[in-house]
Amino acid sequence: MPDRSIEFGKFGARGIKGYEAVARQLDKLAGFIATPVTVRRGLMARLHYLTRSAHARVAAREAGLTVTDRTLKAWLDGKRTPSRRNLARIEDAYLTVRRQNVARYLLGRLNREGRGTRVEFHPLNQSQVSRPHQRVVAYRVLNVRHWDAVVQAWADNDEEGLDRAWFDDITVDLGSDYGAYEYVTNIGFAA
């Protein structure tokens, strides 16, 4: 079982883990707030997202934003500003809650009632690898029909689970050379 490329990059190959590329693509599809949390506008957008309903407040608390309602109100009114530590907690809570809220929608969008989504595997960059050490790895396309485990691991921010779901459930459908796609330059899919 791969984990495969024990000394990845030893001969100059460059790339990222396939599951990291998938997580980046799912993050793009989730549509996070673009303004950083350190800017007032970004902070307010995140706080409004996390406090707009009782359900959102409960999810924010479960995600690690454990300040009092009084402190939240002071932040929203602009009377106080959060510390760096609390800004990081706000950002983490926002990402967690947003992923959980968007996961069901993304799952339906990616599965498309059993039709699936076309995924493009862009192989790792071997331009710096000498000829004798280069692998024959080509651009591949695969239609993925079952995204459940991948989206659930992404929503839970479980990197190990995402790696396992992506590599063991999805890339094995590439055939016998599936291990060559552990590292890629990009994974592309439009849902």
Rank of each mutant, 00 (worst) to 15 (best):
V172T: 14
A103C: 05
N186Q: 14
E159L: 10
P36S: 09
A45I: 00
Q152E: 12
Y139A: 03
D27T: 01
V151G: 04
A103N: 07
S83K: 04
L162N: 06
R164K: 11
D168R: 11
D3A: 11
D177Y: 01
D92G: 10
F11E: 11
D169A: 11
R52A: 14
S130N: 11
A23M: 08
L47Y: 05
W147D: 02
F121N: 02
G108V: 01
L162V: 00
L29Q: 11
T38W: 01
R115F: 12
D173L: 13
L65I: 06
A21Y: 03
K10Q: 14
L87C: 04
A34Y: 05
L110Q: 02
K28M: 09
R135V: 00
H55M: 13
T185E: 12
R80W: 07
A56F: 04
G175F: 09
L87T: 00
N157L: 10
V129G: 04
L76N: 03
G64Y: 04
L47E: 09
G64M: 02
N186D: 14
L50I: 07
E120H: 12
A34T: 13
G64N: 06
R109A: 13
D163K: 12
D156N: 13
V144R: 05
H55Y: 11
L50M: 08
L124W: 06
D3F: 09
N186K: 15
G179W: 09
F8T: 00
R89H: 15
F167C: 05
L72T: 00
G42N: 06
R99A: 06
G108Y: 03
T81M: 14
A191L: 06
T117L: 11
M1S: 13
P36D: 10
D168H: 10
V141M: 12
L162E: 03
A45H: 05
L110P: 03
E62N: 13
A191S: 13
G108Q: 10
E160K: 14
E20S: 10
I187M: 12
A13K: 03
P82I: 08
R14G: 07
I187E: 01
L110Y: 01
R135N: 08
S176T: 13
R131C: 01
A21I: 06
Q100S: 15
E113Q: 14
G114N: 09
H55R: 15
G9W: 07
G9P: 07
T35F: 00
Y94K: 07
V137H: 02
E62R: 15
A190H: 13
R109H: 11
A21L: 01
M1P: 10
M44H: 10
L43C: 00
A34V: 12
A45N: 12
Y178G: 02
V97A: 07
